[in-house]
């Protein structure tokens, strides 16, 4: 009798063991190329860089809540659409995001490389689709709520920060272009 109950307990315990998929970044170059090809077609523009000047860096620190680990950011633009490829640490590893911005709103947010062992759920469409149409207000906060994912808190936080950064950078590039004209 005890053996039977014990077996049931063991089976229940077995269900608690959930495999954690890992998303390696061994094909990162292809991921980025195909992403840019999908956005810009055959006419992928040359990459440009935005240096983090002092005022911009301060705003980035406000968003990230830590000093950025880079001095410049890389982007591709055809004049209306901007694609930013940005890294942010989830828990211990960098997550690489591609963010497509047009008219100061996010058109798409994609995870190009996920190196953490947990929180990979942010790669799913049900999560990334929440960023479509999102902009930032004057305080540089996202102007629409993004629902989190249980167990992926730090990855969710990283994705929101990257979305804020991409929108800030696009705004900054626009301002630079306007000043130049």
């Amino acid at each position: 009798m005890f053996g039977g109950r014990f077996l049931v307990l063991l089976v229940c315990a077995g269900f608690l063991i959930v495999p954690t998929p890992l998303f390696a970044n061994d094909n990162l170059a292809d991921e980025q190329s195909s992403y840019l090809g999908r956005v810009f077609g055959s006419a992928v523009p040359l990459p440009k860089t935005l240096w983090l000047k002092e005022d911009l860096k301060e705003q980035v620190v406000d968003i990230l809540q830590h000093t950025p680990g880079f001095l410049r950011a890389r982007y591709w633009s055809d004049g209306t659409t901007y694609v930013w490829v940005l890294d942010e640490i989830g828990k211990t590893q960098a997550i690489t995001f591609a963010v497509r911005v047009a008219a100061d709103r996010i058109e798409e947010l994609d995870v190009l490389a996920f190196r953490e062992s947990r929180g990979w759920e942010i790669k799913h469409d049900f999560y990334t689709e929440q960023f479509i149409g999102v902009g930032v207000n004057d305080d540089l906060n996202l102007d629409k709520p993004i629902d989190g994912i249980t167990g992926a808190t730090l990855s969710v936080r990283a994705s929101k920060k990257v979305a804020q950064m991409a929108l800030l950078f696009t705004r900054y590039v626009h301002k630079d272009i306007a000043l130049a004209q």
Partner: peptide, 19 residues
């Protein structure tokens, strides 16, 4: 698949994905 760019002082400028 990556190139990391550093200043002479060892400060990371940028991590870029190679084409």
């Amino acid at each position: 698949s990556l190139v990391r760019m550093y200043t002479e002082q060892g400060e990371l400028i940028e991590t870029a994905i190679l084409p």
